[in-house]
Write a protein that binds this DNA or RNA. Sequence first.
DNA 1: ACTTTCACTGAATTTAGATTCAGTATGTTG
DNA 2: CAACATACTGAATCTAAATTCAGTGAAAGT
Lengths: 198, 198
Amino acid sequence: MKRKERAAETEAALKAAAKRVFAERGYLNTKIADITAEAGRAAGSFYNHFAGKEALLEALLADMATEGDSAASAPGHLSDFTDPEAVRQHIEVSVRLYREHAATIRAVQEAALVSENFAGTLARFAGSEMADILGHVTCVTDAGRRLPAPPETALRMVYSLVHAFLQIRRQPADALSDEEVTEALTRFVYRGLNGCDF
Amino acid sequence: MKRKERAAETEAALKAAAKRVFAERGYLNTKIADITAEAGRAAGSFYNHFAGKEALLEALLADMATEGDSAASAPGHLSDFTDPEAVRQHIEVSVRLYREHAATIRAVQEAALVSENFAGTLARFAGSEMADILGHVTCVTDAGRRLPAPPETALRMVYSLVHAFLQIRRQPADALSDEEVTEALTRFVYRGLNGCDF
DNA sequence: ACTTTCACTGAATTTAGATTCAGTATGTTG
DNA sequence: CAACATACTGAATCTAAATTCAGTGAAAGT
């Protein structure tokens, strides 16, 4: 079975090369030739494994999804969220996950910028990644605690924060209105200044 | 002087068409032919006025900068920031400015994604637009009030928030570290949950 | 051992789109 | 009113990059 091994090896080399090159130059700036060169293969070799650049990116996404899912279901990932330390730990995991896959995520976003096709893909991924933070925020209303905004808005604010700090662009679909933006920023800045709510 | 009028008219038509098409399809997805078609001119006409797509974008940026500067220096723009209402008004102006020019800003960011040339341009613009919010945040330390983070970090957090909520991507230059991200998110979420600091 | 299959190669082809430029029509100048 | 200038046109050209495909050699099958 040396033939399939060899093929698998080449495919893996192409994927790894793509990740490196995407991280360095960005998805849109990367030519197929860049990837094959980085992988040390001939130009045409690429098409033995992928239908095109988008297909390659989909493969990277699939890999990421399986990794991400296993990390999310790791033991002790979720616990008591009335404890600041627990909140911190929980968020650390999310941050790390995003950070590890930042290059691929950004590649998808660049792809979505140009190809209608990828617009939905990222939204799906982001949703699953953040599922527990979101659940966390929304369940607060059940407990009767005060939120800085209606649950749906708060949810999107958290999304925005993660994406912003990690420099990941969100999809227009869940854009906030001007009023929501003003409200959120006002509270954030005011609290920052005065250390309290109003 | 009908000749120069006509030329100016065509140039304006091309700019206006470009703005519309950029807003609709994005900068990278827009072909020169799309712009000339939208403007109702011949394909070659574009090059009578601009050296290329990037030159056109620079022209749009220049227009935006002059508009933006006049808005920023409007009377009553800045006032007392210990008052939540004043904070809100201040932020409203910033939000509106960003929002009005969102299409052009995003075009520049798309351009920056692909052309090394535009990377710096946006950072400069963002800096000037946000100058007063930044001044606001940093001056708080002078007044001896408690901040949720060191001034430089808080400053970048505010930047991040504006960019995030308005879906504008920031430059890697002022990226936050994982620790800063975790810290900021923890405080944000915990406050959202419990309505208080820790 | 002999044939077939398959992964890989890289030069040749195709394609999308930017860019040019000779031609046309409309102002402008003397 | 002639001679000139220039904004505009759009078909022709150029270019970078994606994509194809006949050829090559190593493995798999018989």
